[in-house]
């Protein structure tokens, strides 16, 4: 299985830690960011294979991050998966409109996270 670099963007450190643990366990490289702004800064210097971002975050939310990344040529085709809550179909719609690739509902099981990652990365 090829090693992929994934960025997890979430303002909850616990969440980041858990995601990071799960993905590293599957052999991936993981970098973390605490909100959209931080992710943007990081991603201007680094290419990643997948962006996993929370929707609700301070400073810059996940939808805006998606929109901003899609505006950059190097991220035009990078998969972006939104971590969202079940009660917000509007957000999903908004996410789709912004250019997100998929979504995963919080809370999720580790298996589900890995399934969506594999699917999106085509591995």
């Amino acid at each position: 299985m090829p090693i992929k670099t994934i960025i997890t963007v979430d303002d909850a450190a616990t969440m980041r830690k858990m995601i990071s643990f799960t993905l590293k366990g599957a052999g991936h490289d993981v970098i973390e960011a605490g909100d959209g702004v931080e992710a943007l800064k990081t991603l201007q210097m680094r290419q990643v294979d997948l962006v996993l971002t929370d929707v609700n975050m301070p400073n810059m939310d996940g939808i805006t991050l998606t929109r901003s990344l899609r505006a950059l040529p190097q991220f035009a085709h990078t998969p972006i998966v939104l971590l969202t809550t079940e009660s917000s179909p509007e957000k999903k719609a908004e996410g789709k409109a912004a250019g997100a690739t998929g979504w995963i509902v919080k809370p999720f099981q580790q298996e589900q996270l890995l399934a969506v990652v594999s699917k999106v990365l085509g591995i």
């Binding site: 909850a12 616990t14 969440m15 858990m18 609700n56 809550t85 919080k106 809370p107 999720f108």
Partner: peptide
């Protein structure tokens, strides 16, 4: 929102 998400996971 954060508490909910993290607690769920």
């Amino acid at each position: 929102h954060t508490i909910k998400g993290t607690a769920g996971c």
